[in-house]
Design a protein around this nucleic acid. Structure first.
Length: 372
DNA sequence: TAACCGTGGCT
DNA sequence: TAGCCAAGGTT
């Protein structure tokens, strides 16, 4: 592998393929964007961008696909049309509206950021990268994106799409994440002084629709003439990535307590960490070794005739794989243990889609309710 | 720096 | 199927 890399580098330097030149690249890209830009709910064709909408969409789009974001974005906008209304909302309402989108700290930061902007900035977002960067949930990428898209500042947001486009344009063969800084610097050389917001979105659209991770459509690409990876025939393999660590497995036993009147027993997770502040089905600890029902039964939320539900619920998180066995029991509506608030709260099944319940927990509930 | 932090679609 | 990946940020 090392030899292959070395050989490819030698070819890249030896061939002196045409460099992507900033002015021509930007012009060609913007022409393509004017013609082919996707229609997205947060994208305004002509006219002024609303910084609140740009910010909301960018937070939601962090590590999240456009398709997943759209319904959440629309729902948020209907419910909280501006930053002041969002700031006035209870955190639990925001978490509930965010449920299913993942990375729940984003929702907490979103809410916190809204309060800061509403309270300390008079409801106006700052227009510089540095000031944006100081707000919770806004890092280098998002600060640059908002500055460029909402305020027409010359800024270069670099996300996964841009990294890929740039790695190919310049045939950068060093693997990610080691080459992140180099890709960012190269990306800056492409950004024009005018229309930087459109340019940023064009780069990302290009990465999403043409310069895709696998099998890029180079024949349709407006930048193919200046693309070194294309000239070398190595576009499909860039950017390289260093090997990722394998995902460990964690196992646990979930206790699904049901009430005859159609309620399930849930509890709130700690405010920080995994699924912070979200609701969950009570469970044993999640360990790397098997958990016996006998030991796990100590953490059952109520006394009852717990019976195993056949099968296992598998859910893959970013850094581990969760395998949950589900036990369930039916509790009398009048039973005493079922009313201790420390053990959790009874939630009507018809209300489950209105509370802050993550997907993994919906999966566990669905599994527990499936068989008789 | 590297670990932590969700979810779902695609191949 | 199992891995890859997405408009990343925080600690």
């Amino acid at each position: 592998m090392a030899r292959a890399r070395g050989a490819a580098l030698a070819v890249a330097e030896g061939q002196r393929t045409p460099q992507a030149s900033p002015p021509n690249t930007a012009e060609a890209l913007l022409r393509w964007y004017d013609r082919e830009a996707r229609v997205l709910p947060w994208r305004v064709r002509r006219g002024r961008q609303d910084p609140y909408r740009v910010w909301l969409s960018e937070i939601m789009l962090q590590q999240t696909t456009v398709k997943a974001v759209i319904p959440y974005y629309m729902a948020f906008l209907v419910r909280w049309p501006d930053v002041v209304s969002l700031a006035a909302a209870p955190l639990d309402d925001v978490l509930a509206a965010w449920a299913g989108l993942g990375y729940y700290r984003r929702a907490r930061n979103l809410h916190n950021c809204a309060r800061i902007v509403a309270r300390e900035q008079g409801g106006r977002f700052p227009d510089s990268e540095d000031a944006l960067r100081a707000l919770p949930g806004i890092g280098p990428y998002t600060a640059a994106a908002i500055a460029a898209i909402a305020f027409e500042r010359k800024a270069t947001p670099v996300d996964g799409n841009v990294e890929r486009v740039v790695a190919r344009l310049f045939a950068v063969q060093e693997p990610l994440p080691a080459c992140k800084a180099e890709l960012k610097q190269l990306a800056r050389t492409l950004t024009p002084a005018a229309r930087s917001g459109d340019h940023a979105q064009a780069m990302m659209d290009l990465g999403a629709t043409i310069c895709t991770p696998k099998r890029p459509s180079c024949e349709r690409c407006p930048l193919s003439h200046g693309c070194r990876a294309r000239a070398l025939g190595i576009a499909d393999g860039l950017p390289r990535r260093s090997a990722k660590p394998e995902r460990p497995v964690r196992r646990g036993i979930a206790f699904l307590a049901l009430r005859e009147d159609g309620h399930v027993l849930l509890r709130k997770r700690p405010e920080t960490g995994l699924l912070g502040g979200m609701l969950e089905v009570p469970s044993s600890e999640w360990r790397e070794t098997d958990v016996s029902f006998q030991k796990a039964a100590q953490s059952a939320p109520v006394r009852g005739n717990w019976t195993a539900v056949p099968g296992v619920v598998v859910h893959v998180f970013t850094h581990f794989r969760l395998e949950m066995q589900v036990y369930r029991t039916v509790v009398e509506v009048t039973s005493k243990g079922a009313r201790d608030p420390k053990k959790g709260q009874w939630v009507a099944r018809r209300n489950l889609d209105r509370v802050a319940l993550p997907s993994v927990m919906r999966k566990i509930i669905a599994h527990g309710l499936r068989t008789k």
